[in-house]
């Protein structure tokens, strides 16, 4: 009788603990999937490229992207001092920069940065790193704030154009990419 009881209790315990582990794993997997999609971009540093180096103003490109894409929220250009507070990149690593942020209601964003001429490759790497850190911060912020925004945060457009890197967070990835390609035609 005692043996039967022991077997029954052991089985119950195993089933209960397996349930806990599964739900924990499911939660971790969901979070991991979101982070991994961004990390995939981080490893690639950019998910598209225009190799030719064009001479352009970051503000001009950012304004063009904003004017030629649909965003749910109103985006506005932010002050460069604020830009360098929010992005973890030194001013001497960046020759030119412009960023459009949302009101806070969405995660939509346009950021254009051109690497400073000294140590261009290192500066480009720092810019890419700053972009990915910004994405991670935004994912963390929006995950319990407006979780629907995680969809666009998990698929940002990060494009290298010569010595510049552009990031666009929006619903229509393909349109954003085409807009940039059109700008440089």
């Amino acid at each position: 009788m005692k043996k039967i009881l022991i077997v029954i209790l052991t089985l119950t315990l195993i089933i209960t603990m397996a349930g806990c582990e599964q739900s924990k794993q499911t939660a971790n997997t969901a979070a991991d999937n979101t982070i991994n999609e961004v990390s995939a971009d981080k490893n690639a540093s950019a998910n598209d490229q225009i190799s030719k180096n064009y001479d352009f103003q970051a503000a001009d490109l950012a304004a063009y992207i904003y004017a030629n894409n649909k965003f749910k929220d109103q985006l506005s250009e932010i002050n460069s001092n604020v830009l360098f507070e929010i992005y973890d990149v030194d001013k001497d690593e960046v020759k030119d920069a412009c960023s459009y942020f949302s009101t806070g209601a969405t995660a939509e964003e346009i950021t254009v940065m051109t690497a400073a001429d000294s140590n261009i490759q290192d500066n480009l790497a720092e810019i890419n790193k700053a972009y990915n850190e910004r994405l991670e911060d935004q994912i963390e912020a929006f995950s319990d704030y407006v979780p629907e925004e995680l969809t666009k945060l998990s698929n940002p457009l990060i494009m290298e154009i010569g010595n510049s890197v552009v990031m666009v967070v929006c619903d229509d990835y393909d349109r954003a990419k085409q807009t940039i390609l059109d700008y440089f035609k």
Binding site: K2, K3, L5, I6, L9, T10, T12, L13, T16, M17, C20
Partner: peptide, 18 residues
Amino acid sequence: KLWILFVFIVILIMTLAG
């Protein structure tokens, strides 16, 4: 055997409580 049974019951209760 009784002690083993007792330990399992305690662990089960703690897990369910969690």
